[in-house]
Simulated scan of single mutants.
Amino acid sequence: MTTASIKAIKVSASLSLAILLALSFGWEKPYWAAIAVIVMATTENYSHALHKARQRIIGTASGVVLGFVLLALFGQQRELFLLSELILGGFAAYMSARSRHAYAYRMAFIVALIIALASGLSETFSFHLAVLRVQETLLGVICYSLVFSLFWPEKKDPNVVPRQVILSQAEAGLRVLKFIVVTLVSWMIWIYLPMPGGFMFPLIAATLGLSIIEFPHHYLNKVLGLVYIWACIVLTQYVFVLPLLDNGWQLGTFYFVNTFAVWRLFPKDNQLPMRILGGQFLVLLTMNAQHLRPVFDIHSSLQMLLFLSVVLIIIRFVVYFVDTFFVVSGEVKIE
């Protein structure tokens, strides 16, 4: 059996196990555990995955605390909350370019926003979300570690640390500027246009913006194309396949087969975006099927696809204009 097939089997088993265990525990958002598996599976090897898992756990715990602080201080003041989001997100964007612990900074900010905005700025519901987020993250890490330790185990080298490119202060400053512009534009659209879904749109804009502002604008064109390709594949199965499954093992098999296909068809390093988008779209666009009482409503999935499309278009143009302006002005060189 090839190395690519072994890796695909282990990732598929980890993701399916995480979803099924979360459902058996009665947890509401199994896709959080699945995303933790996907994030670990996009690393170079098992040692790197464990390193990233530690950063994810540290970032999640820090983000929970930060989220409650934001709610306590600015939960009833939208303008001050937006200002604090810009400051904290800008700091996370800067550290993502200048620190060896970039992933932990990003996770802390993303989890803090989820705790605050996904709860509708409600402290009572946010505590429930915080506990659930920590539980789901730990479950994903445990499932991944367990499967990769028991099946075709790899040797762990504690001295191996993933390569982290440290950028210049000017390049880090550009990331901060891009994040601030993307966040401000998204909030203005949400405030002045009748966007559905509560705080979901600004939440997606801030978290996605922080994650992909590092990519050049021409690369984001390809990302947008991949979004629609994966959306068509996943939504077709969501409409015609998932409603026919009525047992837990069938649901687990569905995620196993699809995850295996993604990792087996795109095993190369330069195909990493295909694996990330394929895995995350698989679990996010079918999240309603992961409830204890599954819901097969295409409208929520299409709404999320709309949000993702609008946010990606905003990020693409912001990255293009910022990079073009600073290249032309000669203030910083973009590689």
Rank of each mutant, 00 (worst) to 15 (best):
I142Y: 05
L71G: 12
A104S: 11
A8L: 10
M195P: 04
S14Q: 03
L113G: 13
S126A: 15
V176Y: 04
G67V: 06
S186D: 01
L306K: 08
V327T: 15
G252S: 06
S5R: 09
A22W: 04
L282W: 04
L132E: 15
H291T: 11
F326D: 05
A33F: 05
F321H: 09
G330R: 04
I229N: 02
L50I: 10
I35D: 02
E85M: 15
I233D: 02
L285E: 03
I38M: 06
F296P: 06
F266W: 08
L150V: 15
I212A: 11
A170F: 09
I142S: 10
V111D: 01
M188A: 14
Q280K: 05
M95R: 10
L282Y: 04
A41Y: 01
L210M: 08
A206M: 07
F148Q: 00
A206R: 01
P158N: 07
I142T: 09
F240A: 09
N221F: 07
I229P: 04
A33E: 01
G26N: 07
A22N: 02
Y219C: 05
W32V: 15
Q237Y: 12
R133G: 08
R275Y: 08
F151S: 08
S168M: 03
H128F: 06
I57L: 15
H128P: 00
R293N: 13
A130K: 03
G75P: 03
W32G: 14
P196E: 04
T207V: 14
P294H: 04
I58K: 12
A13H: 07
S84T: 02
M95S: 10
F127V: 13
G279Q: 01
A13K: 07
P243Y: 09
R78N: 04
G252H: 03
T137N: 04
M95Y: 06
N45I: 07
F266V: 08
I57W: 10
H48Q: 09
T42Q: 03
L302I: 12
S119R: 02
V295W: 02
M40H: 04
F199I: 03
I58S: 15
R56Y: 07
S96R: 14
N270C: 12
F256K: 02
E171G: 05
L265G: 15
K52H: 10
I189K: 05
A104K: 00
Q164Y: 02
P162S: 05
V234L: 10
L15E: 00
T183N: 06
W263T: 11
A33N: 00
F240E: 06
M304A: 11
T207C: 15
P267I: 02
Y219W: 08
Q290T: 07
V69P: 00
A231K: 03
Q55G: 15
L306N: 07
L82I: 08
V141I: 15
S186L: 01
S309W: 01
F260W: 05
T236S: 13
G89C: 12
A53R: 01
Q237C: 14
S62V: 06
F127G: 14
R98T: 12
T42D: 04
F81T: 00
F215M: 13
G197Y: 00
Q77S: 11
A206D: 00
L167T: 13
L308F: 09
A8H: 05
